[in-house]
C-alpha cells in the first residue's frame, strides 16, 4: 500500500512521575493477569534508582514498551513464522501459531517480550484493537502527565512527526543494535 501508516510513540520522559497508570491500564485493556509474576508486563518504567549521595540526589523515570522495530530481531528467530511486522510497523504475534520456544523473548534487546501462562510469547502491540477503532493505545490515553504522544510518523502533520521535527535531538534506545525502533524519546 502506498500510504502506509507508521505507528510511533514519542516520549517526553521528563514528565513521567512513575505512577504506574500505563502498566495497569495496559493489563486491564489487554486482559493480562500477571498473577504475581514480575516478568509479565507489556510496558514498564525504567527507574535509575536513587543516584548520588544524600542529600544531593537524582532519580529519573523512563517508560518503555515494545519498540515495534523497523528491523525487528525477534522476527527472523521465530521457527514457525508466528511473529511479523504489519504494514503499519506494529510487530504482532499469532498466539495460535506460537509454539512457546522463547527464542524471540531471548532475542529482544529491550526485553519487551515475555511468556504467558499459556506458554506463548506476548508483548505490546500498541493496542492494535483500539487503534483499529480510532483510539489511542491504553498507555497513552490513561497517562496523567501525557508522557506519550501516539501517531503516524508517515503523516508530516501528525503530532508525532511535528514533535520529532521540533526535537532534532530525540533519541532511540540501543541505536547500535540497528533495530530501527519506533519509540522516540525527546527527554
Amino acid at each position: 500500500m502506498a500510504n502506509n501508516k507508521l505507528w510511533t510513540i514519542v516520549f517526553d520522559a521528563d514528565k513521567c512521575i512513575d505512577c504506574k497508570a500505563c502498566d495497569v491500564a495496559c493489563k486491564r485493556e489487554n486482559g493480562i493477569n500477571a498473577n504475581g509474576n514480575q516478568d509479565v508486563r507489556r510496558n514498564w518504567i525504567n527507574a535509575t534508582g536513587v543516584v548520588g549521595t544524600y542529600p544531593n540526589l537524582k532519580k529519573s523515570f523512563q517508560p518503555e514498551q515494545c519498540h515495534q522495530c523497523g528491523n525487528p530481531p525477534c522476527v527472523p528467530v521465530c521457527p514457525v513464522d508466528a511473529t511479523w511486522a504489519k504494514d503499519d510497523g506494529v510487530v504482532v504475534i499469532d498466539k495460535d501459531v506460537c509454539i512457546g520456544c522463547t527464542l524471540c523473548v531471548l532475542e529482544c534487546p529491550y526485553e519487551a517480550r515475555y511468556m504467558t501462562e499459556n506458554n506463548t510469547a506476548d508483548k505490546c502491540d500498541f493496542c492494535a484493537h483500539r487503534v483499529a477503532e480510532g483510539k489511542e493505545p491504553a498507555c497513552v490515553d490513561t497517562c496523567p502527565t501525557r508522557v506519550r504522544v501516539f501517531g503516524d510518523l508517515n503523516d508530516p502533520n501528525s503530532a508525532v512527526a511535528k514533535l520529532l521535527k521540533a526535537n532534532p535531538n530525540a533519541k532511540v534506545l540501543h541505536p547500535e543494535r540497528g533495530t530501527k525502533p519506533n519509540l522516540h524519546y525527546i527527554s
Binding site: 505512577c19 497508570a21 495497569v24 491500564a25 486491564r28 485493556e29 490515553d141 490513561t142 496523567p144
Partner: peptide, 25 residues
Amino acid sequence: IKRLEPQPEFAKGRGMMCARGNAGA
C-alpha cells in the same frame, strides 16, 4: 467490566485515569 477508560472531557481530571482508577475494575 473490562476497562475503565478515562473520560477525556472531564476537565478536573484532565482526562486521565491513574493506576488505582484502572485497577478498580
